[in-house]
Design a protein around this nucleic acid. Sequence first.
DNA 1: CTTTAAATTTAGCCTTGACTAAATTTATTT
DNA 2: AAATAAATTTAGTCAAGGCTAAATTTAAAG
Lengths: 222, 222
Amino acid sequence: MEQTLTISIQDYLKNIYELTENGESASTNALASKLNVKPASVTGMVQKLASAKPALVEYQKHQGVTLTDDGKKAALEVIRHHRLLEAWLVQTLGYSWDEVHAEAEKLEHVISEDFERRIAAAMGHPLRDPHGELIPTADLQMPLDDSTPLSSLRANQSGTVQYVKAADAELLKHFETLGLIPEAELEVTGYSPFDHNLTIKIGRKSIVLGLNITSKIYVKES
Amino acid sequence: MEQTLTISIQDYLKNIYELTENGESASTNALASKLNVKPASVTGMVQKLASAKPALVEYQKHQGVTLTDDGKKAALEVIRHHRLLEAWLVQTLGYSWDEVHAEAEKLEHVISEDFERRIAAAMGHPLRDPHGELIPTADLQMPLDDSTPLSSLRANQSGTVQYVKAADAELLKHFETLGLIPEAELEVTGYSPFDHNLTIKIGRKSIVLGLNITSKIYVKES
DNA sequence: CTTTAAATTTAGCCTTGACTAAATTTATTT
DNA sequence: AAATAAATTTAGTCAAGGCTAAATTTAAAG
């Protein structure tokens, strides 16, 4: 019997935010598997969030959930905490790029606004976390992203890696080995229209990357 | 109707530790008022802790609680977290001496052992927190204290302030104003056997302190 | 030694947020 | 359009960890 640890409202909101970034609404099932909880439990919590004093989500039976403005603010608050913490842990405690996530995941829920301000100021109000993800501003707006997936570049285009979208540490390590880390500069030297593979030059080496990778590396074209 | 926020087991253990440092056992009532919880709730939790897989407390009806070795280890773990965090927050984020407590109170429960090791190492394994309280060692022993209350000194004895035992920020500020902070050096110039007041010289000023203060300032005689 | 007061425990209730199983709705096939 | 499959919701259960009120112990006072 698995111990059934309880998910915070903040986690619900954060995950709804992530699932709805594409404009679609989040399904009960998707949320459930993201949160490691049964769909029925999600339904219950979502109903509660929808009927909270200031409603945090918009919810219609069988139609999925969306965040209200209040809910979105709360979600961005947690995401800001998370990303600032990741940056902070890397910069001051020498955490590696792929170790910070779990620690930030726990701290994000308990730090004060004062703590948030202090670390933001100490780092000079960074725009992106160590993965390159955008950090919501202090007034809880998500900055516009001027990057595109590496997979959208073609031969002779070049750019600077902005961020790397990978959940698991193993993949992150792999990217790091390839040199595909934020700030890295690269140039596309070849494109295979058949399988969408790209040949890129990074530093002094030339490598071929499949779509599974090029769709996860975001670059700013230059 | 007050919202009834739930107290962690760690908080129970930490507070039992503090109440039993004098060798006595902790009463249900004392624990209840420390934790802002009703005595009946304490009884319930204490019974649970006593019958946990490895028992965390020793408990006999109407006799109060004591920590088992396992319970003491868990308590010292949290206390170590708390004190390391206070030191860390003061040193790296410029928190003032009296602001750190609340923040550390929240963080102490969620940081990983890795985080603990990192901040301890970054600070060079400090012995005391910013209040001067001893920090339990990495192997969870409470170091011996070689300090005595200022109230035990007499004329012509002098010492260095080790720590200041005050719960509320207001009192801490007062001590700070007087210059009674860790590392400060002072000399006792007078003693009134009637009311136990001490006249001390600290820096270039001379002040008279009552027992209410001298019993809370701990010094290392020199 | 009683009596009264104070502290503690018991018993039963309430809320939260999970869970399972059954019912219902929506979506997909044929 | 009917039948089946997949997703979602409802209903009822459970464990935690608070709470209150009543019962019981221990301690203090006369």
